[in-house]
Design a protein around this nucleic acid. Structure first.
Length: 644
RNA sequence: GCUGUUGUAGCUCAGUGGUAGAGCACUUCCUUGGUAAGGAAGAGGUCGUGAGUUCAAUCCUCAUCAACAGCUCCA
């Protein structure tokens, strides 16, 4: 019996029935056979040793394939488990999957502390075990057999997992002395794993549920070559240099104080310039797009949030009400701006002719985020949203939504964020009690969001369970230096709040109608946006945002007077900069200005003084030659204009 | 909030059961220098906070606060 195997290039070859992936790889080339990790059979990844029993389209997977890496890391997780069991007999295993970079295994060490030394010891053991070239072998087992094995072994988490599986579809994998419940696939043997690093230990709730026991999660990464591990670790180090918390300190942009309170950022002068530049940019864009700026207070009476539903949802996990000398009077620090804007809407009767009304505010809000969630500027307890609420007629929702998408894209493009993900965040259908409002309005909102995104040609991913409690969202996600995803821009359709606040307008039919509300914040928050911006450009801000645009560097103190003249001239033109008149050599001044990532340096000495010139140096690009001061100023002013 | 790790000078970090050190930054002096670190001297710290063990604690124990990694959460 022969079967036909279709290779990725479309060619078809005949093999005996029951041929394995490794046999196919060998028939193609010895080199391929040496590096092949798994095989894709009709879109499914299999072990190389598994016989193929019918015609199939295949692809041999190596380290260069994503699925190859995933398989490699999955097998590495098993190796980690084997090492753990060898060193910590009786350890109970949860799950051990591959992740984007590496893998982890969740284990229950019976309450034993597991520190860095234990981690290092396990790593050594893994290396030792890997060298044994133990084969990963697959075995079909019945549900009863599977339960019997793990009951005898005393692995309650595996038993729970098996309980959820169908009989007849359960497989074990074994390498060395370690047997695991696993559907596979795996690489041929442990010898492929040449380089490994256990990265860290963390807690993780069993099955991701806060109410379950917390297991110990061990993260690691492995590679087929030592050099690749070194490169990866180097890359991690490089990424850490772009961390906004590090750069924020070095460039004096923001700070935190224990005394002020955790998660409450202090914006330093240079950071404030950056922030205000962004704010100005947004104000201008919004005025152009037909928004009306408003300003509302930082607190509001508790009744406001009872009406909005936020109090019920978040009240007990928030900053608690502020009391006044009047018995029973309570105010909340505002955790969002929408209720205030609803009250602005209600200040007078509205006609359908008035809509849409777009109220915009850089609104500072306070949310009592869990202490473990705080993270630099990306997750804080006091932050400023570039918030706005659009009140419109139902038939205007889509066109308004599209306009907002355009605004968000304009902002992202202006700041060079090309790699974002547009995420449609919907309800978790299995968990509807988390949300308010009627189904048909949710469905309508979801449809409108998806249609608007599609019409703008946005590639979207849909994520269930990420909606706000009052409505679905379109979120714009951007990765930080270390690849963590953050939500920046967000657009939300809301049919609930207008009802709760009894907002209305008079239609052309002279009847009262309820408007629809669109919440939107292109930056999301100034704090988070600045954080991601810092990491994105590694602190080398575009000229229009740079806190210090120019450093004037006199070659010696003899030229300080002329340097001051140059500096004053820049200031007159609203150019931001500094004059470095320290008694230091020019090399030193240049180094310091480079380190501080100042885009332009103007060097002045004997030659420049006599001719009214400046020697221009660009950050990280070196000497640009000399130019008359006036001409430099003219050119610079053109170059530093904000996008519009 | 949970698990683990960390907390020493403005910053980056050494170090020790007998009340502390480096480099950079800072101050002063020398130097007046042409595109990434000139030289010298000086000043600067209740070793996160509180309690305990000890003749003696920055170091050991406990508690607490904060930061970091991850989980959970995210209006």
């Amino acid at each position: 019996m022969k079967i036909n195997i279709t290779l990725p290039d479309g060619s078809i070859r005949e093999f005996p029935n029951g041929v394995t992936g490794s046999e196919i790889a060998s028939s193609i080339s010895e080199g391929l056979a040496r590096v092949s990790l798994a095989i894709e059979v009709n879109g499914e990844v299999w072990d190389l040793s598994r016989p193929i029993l019918s015609n199939a389209a295949i692809k041999i997977l190596t380290w260069n394939d994503k699925a190859g890496k995933t398989t490699f890391w999955h097998s590495s997780a098993h190796l980690l488990a084997e090492a753990l069991e060898a060193l910590h007999p009786g350890v109970k295993f949860g799950i051990g999957p591959p992740i984007e970079n590496g893998f982890y295994y969740d284990v229950d060490l019976g309450g034993k502390a597991f520190g860095d030394e234990d981690l290092a010891a396990v790593e050594v053991k893994m290396k030792e075990l890997a060298k044994k070239n133990s084969v990963y072998s697959r075995k079909d087992v019945s549900k009863a057999e599977a339960l019997e094995y793990f009951t005898a072994k005393g692995d309650p988490y595996k038993i729970e997992l098996i309980d959820g599986l169908d009989d007849g579809k359960i497989t074990f994998y074994q390498q060395g002395d370690f047997v695991d419940l696993c559907k596979g696939p795996h690489i041929p043997n442990t010898g492929f794993i040449k380089a490994m690093k256990l990265l860290n230990v963390a807690g993780a709730y069993w099955r991701g549920n806060e109410k379950n026991k917390m297991l110990t999660r061990i993260y690691g990464i492995t590679f087929p070559k030592q050099k690749e591990l070194e490169e990866y670790l180097h890359l991690l180090e490089e990424a850490k240099k772009r961390d906004h918390r590090k750069l924020g300190k070095e460039l004096e942009l923001f700070a935190f104080s224990e005394k002020v309170g955790m998660g409450l950022p202090l914006w330093l002068p240079k950071g404030t310039i950056l922030r205000e530049r962004l704010e100005q940019f947004m104000r201008k864009a919004q005025i152009k797009a037909g928004y009306d700026p408003v300003v509302t207070p930082h607190i509001g009476s508790k009744a406001l949030y009872v009406t909005s539903g936020h109090y019920e949802k978040y009240g007990k996990d928030s900053f608690q009400p502020i009391h006044t000398p009047d018995e029973g009077e309570e105010f909340l620090l505002k955790p969002m701006n929408c209720p205030h804007h609803c009250e602005i809407y209600k200040t007078k009767p509205r006609s359908y002719r008035d809509l849409p009304i777009r109220l915009a505010e850089f609104g500072t809000v306070y949310r009592y985020e869990q202490s473990g969630e705080l993270h630099g500027l990306t997750r804080v307890r006091g932050f400023t949203q570039d918030d706005a609420h659009i009140f419109c007629r139902p038939e205007q929702v889509k066109s308004e939504f599209i306009k907002v998408i355009d605004l968000v894209l304009h902002v992202f493009r202006s700041l060079g964020f090309e790699n974002f993900t547009a995420q449609v965040s919907l309800r978790d259908p299995a968990n509807k009690e988390k949300y308010i409002g009627q189904d048909h309005l949710w469905e309508r909102a979801e449809r409108e969001i998806q249609e608007a995104a599609d019409e703008q040609g946005l590639q979207t991913v849909t994520v269930l369970g990420e909606a706000a409690f009052y409505g679905p969202k379109l979120d714009f996600m951007v990765k930080d230096a270390l690849g963590r995803n953050w939500q920046l821009g967000t657009i939300q359709v809301d049919y609930q709040l207008p009802q709760r606040f009894e907002l209305e307008y008079v239609g052309s039919d002279n009847q009262k109608h309820t408007p629809v509300m669109i919440h939107r914040a292109p930056f999301g928050s100034l704090e988070r946006f600045v954080a991601v911006l810092i990491e994105h450009c590694a602190g080398n801000f575009p000229l229009w945002l740079a806190p210090d645009q120019i450093a004037v560097l006199p070659i010696s103190e003899r030229f300080n007077d002329y340097a001051k003249l140059v500096y004053d001239r820049l200031k007159e033109q609203d150019i931001r900069g500094l004059l470095d008149d320290r008694d230091e050599k020019i090399g030193r001044k240049i180094r310091d200005a480079e380190t501080r990532k100042i885009p332009y340096m103007l060097i002045v000495g004997e030659k420049e003084v006599s001719e009214g010139m400046v020697a221009v140096r660009k950050h990280s690009q070196g000497d640009q030659g000399s130019i008359a001061l006036d001409e430099f100023v003219n050119r610079f002013r053109l170059e530093c204009a904000a996008p519009n």
